[in-house]
């Protein structure tokens, strides 16, 4: 195990940023800390780096207790949100910096730095100043600078937030590719749920200083444990529903007049909150099939790839996305909603 947190707490004065979290990061995997701003994910990352020391608990890196070690003494390196390239040094000097500080000779450092720059596709840019590079290139320099130290853990703090949307997709694919090719252990922080799902082996979702849920991207999206998670991982409509167990594996969800049978082995009978994914709602003209949920269109917005509807139903106002853009429904139209079983999730049952 590369990184291990044991009941780590971080307090600033009277406010608690991180309240007692434990997790492990396997060697060679990419784990993302995901959560809304202020949830403690960046603090957690900085505690791995040694830029913050925990108030309580233990931190182990590669089996060694590093709880009280400063950033310099830990075998980690970090790619910053702002890249933090030294503006008074050339690209090569930037990448050499860590090598020189860890005692390599000038020539050896320069050689490794060149190799590192080639790895991120920046061979030939050695003599440039950081200010002469584009955002994506600066990002790559920052990655190369962290990479050449061959740390046991590589940390990324929202590395893509300063790039435009197109570049962001490209960079996240590159980072994932590099991580898998070199077998790196990476801890990655982001607040973007899509980005997290695209790059991660595992995701740790944090909220107000605690770990909300931990698992693979698919786990978290299809089986969110809490209403917060259902809301945070993709869009979802919260709705009150009545549950009725059919057999040990099957559950019948009664949502207004509509019934949906889903796979669920845990929830008990009675009232519960369910989350309905907007893409699981098929909007059809009324009256529709027998188990459909009748409703009225309130709002319709055309956004290119699909149409977004707000639809008033007995179970509340639902948000639905509809890929059929040829025959848009006008506000006021009566519709029937068919709910796909995999998009109806029980998040809280009593």
């Amino acid at each position: 195990m590369s990184v291990e947190f044991r009941d780590v707490v971080k307090r600033y004065g009277t406010t608690t940023a991180v309240s007692g979290i434990s997790f492990t990061v396997e060697t060679g995997s990419l784990v993302t800390l995901l959560g809304p701003s202020g949830c403690g994910k960046t603090t957690t990352l900085r505690m791995i780096a040694g830029l913050e020391l925990p108030s309580e608990g233990r931190i182990l890196i590669a089996g060694r207790d590093v709880t009280r070690l400063s950033a310099t003494e830990r075998d980690v390196s970090m790619v910053f949100q702002s890249y933090a390239l030294f503006p008074h040094m050339s690209v090569l000097d930037n990448v050499c910096y860590g090598l020189r500080r860890s005692g390599h000779s000038k020539e050896a450092a320069a050689q490794q730095a060149r190799a590192g720059l080639a790895q991120v596709g920046l061979a030939g840019y050695e003599g440039r100043q950081p200010s002469e590079l584009s955002g994506g290139q600066q990002q790559r320099v920052a990655v190369a600078r962290a990479l050449v130290l061959k740390p046991s853990v590589l940390l990324f703090d929202e590395p893509l937030s300063n790039l435009d949307a197109r570049l962001r997709r490209q960079m996240r694919e590159d980072i994932r590719e590099l991580q898998q090719a070199l077998g790196l252990t990476v801890v990655y922080v982001t607040h973007d749920q899509q980005e997290a799902m695209a790059v991660s082996d595992r995701i740790i979702v944090m909220n107000v200083g605690r770990i909300e849920q931990e698992g693979t991207p698919r786990d978290l999206y299809e089986r969110p444990a809490t209403p917060f998670l259902a809301r945070f991982m993709g869009e979802s409509n919260p709705a009150r529903a009545h549950l009725h167990r059919l057999d040990p594996q099957r559950l019948r969800v009664q949502l207004g007049p509509a019934t949906i049978d889903i796979d669920n082995g845990t929830a008990s009978d009675g009232e519960a909150t369910v989350a309905v994914r907007p893409e699981a709602i098929t909007v059809e003209a009324a009256p529709g099939p027998a188990n459909a949920l009748p409703g009225t269109v309130v709002k319709a917005s055309y956004v290119g790839t699909h149409i977004e509807y707000s639809i008033e139903t007995e179970a509340g106002t639902l948000f639905a996305t509809c890929p059929q853009v040829d025959r848009p429904l006008a506000p006021g139209a009566a519709v029937a909603l068919v709910l796909a079983p995999r998009g109806v999730i029980v998040v809280e049952s009593r």
Partner: peptide, 27 residues
Amino acid sequence: IDRSLDEASATLRGRAPQTLIHVVLPL
């Protein structure tokens, strides 16, 4: 001067005096 410059130096094995000499003072 962005604080992360100091932190970058620290995670790159730059001890505080080295950070001062190589990063902070030149800036």
